[in-house]
Design a protein around this nucleic acid. Structure first.
Length: 267
DNA sequence: CTCAGTGTTCAGTG
DNA sequence: TCACTGAACACTGA
């Protein structure tokens, strides 16, 4: 699930229950793949006893701000998610996919689950200037470039636009479904070489990204509340006769990922 | 049994 | 060095 809108939605709900509370207990599964930089045991020591003062997100990464360093950074990979419980609602049996549990001073529990283990838990003293977060490009909700600046960037690249939309060092937070939705709504083929886009194309592309991301965030990434006209609702029945707006959806591989698009409406 | 998947990183190539 | 491509990673469900 997690592209920018999903991650932002998790961040908001986590902040709501953790802010101004102390982390009284942490359980982190000894899982070197998930805790790939800081061992789970060390992570537990670093987090226990700290008070959460806020949170922040860039692209698909988000982190908690604590009253002391370092701060924890989360990436949800393909299948990561968070769940919030009280002592009463906390499941007795911990699922296999549970990677970390935070118990707060008011009795709230926060679970980080990730069955597929592509998610990562790391720490940093200053997330914006360290590691993967520092290498991110423009985040649609923070520092999106003007159409002119974007045109300059894309004009210098010959890769297909679909591949560049997925490039986190340009479009931080855009993932596979957002990229396809953006191309659908701006009428562009995923195969178009970035340098072939006109200024008008880039303007459409840019406004589509902003519109789609903001809309998805405004409905808390609840896809049932996405506008009916979006490709999103029709792309998952892959292989069958998936249709949108009376046209057949085609599935192809571009930029190493499956792309859903409508040749009759996108060029 | 095989394959694809809402992601990122790394090796190989030009 | 850089831009680009394809494979690998780990696991589940169709």
């Amino acid at each position: 699930m997690p592209e920018l809108p999903e991650v932002e939605t998790f961040r908001r709900s986590i902040e709501k229950v953790m802010k101004k509370k102390k982390i009284v207990k942490v359980i982190a599964k000894d899982e070197p793949v998930v805790f790939d930089e800081t061992p789970a045991k060390k992570f537990v020591k670093q987090m226990t006893g700290a008070t959460v003062t806020g949170s922040e997100r860039r692209g698909k990464y988000f982190w908690l701000k604590l009253d002391r360093k370092p701060w924890p950074i989360f990436h949800l990979g393909m299948t990561g998610s968070f769940e919030i419980y009280t002592a009463k609602t906390l499941p007795k049996v911990k699922p296999r996919s549970l990677r970390a549990e935070f118990e707060m001073s008011d009795g709230t529990y926060v679970w980080f689950k990730d069955p597929r283990k592509f998610g990562r838990v790391r720490v940093a003293n200053d997330p914006l200037t360290e590691g993967a977060v520092s290498r991110l490009g423009y985040d649609p909700l923070y520092n999106f470039p003007t159409a002119k600046a974007l045109f300059e960037i894309l004009n210098a690249r010959k890769a297909p636009i679909k591949a560049l939309l997925l490039d986190q060092s340009i479009f931080a937070g855009v993932g596979n479904w957002i990229a396809d939705e953006v191309l659908f709504q701006s009428g562009l083929s995923p195969f178009r070489a970035a340098r072939s886009l006109t200024m008008n194309d880039v303007k459409n592309l840019r406004s589509s990204i902003l519109k789609i991301v903001k809309k998805a965030v405004s409905v808390s990434a609840d896809s049932e509340k996405f506008p009916k006209s979006w490709l999103f609702h029709h792309r998952w029945g892959k292989g069958k006769n998936a249709m949108v707006a009376g046209h057949k959806i085609q599935f192809v591989t571009v930029g190493g990922r499956t792309s859903a698009w409508v040749p009759e409406l996108q060029s």
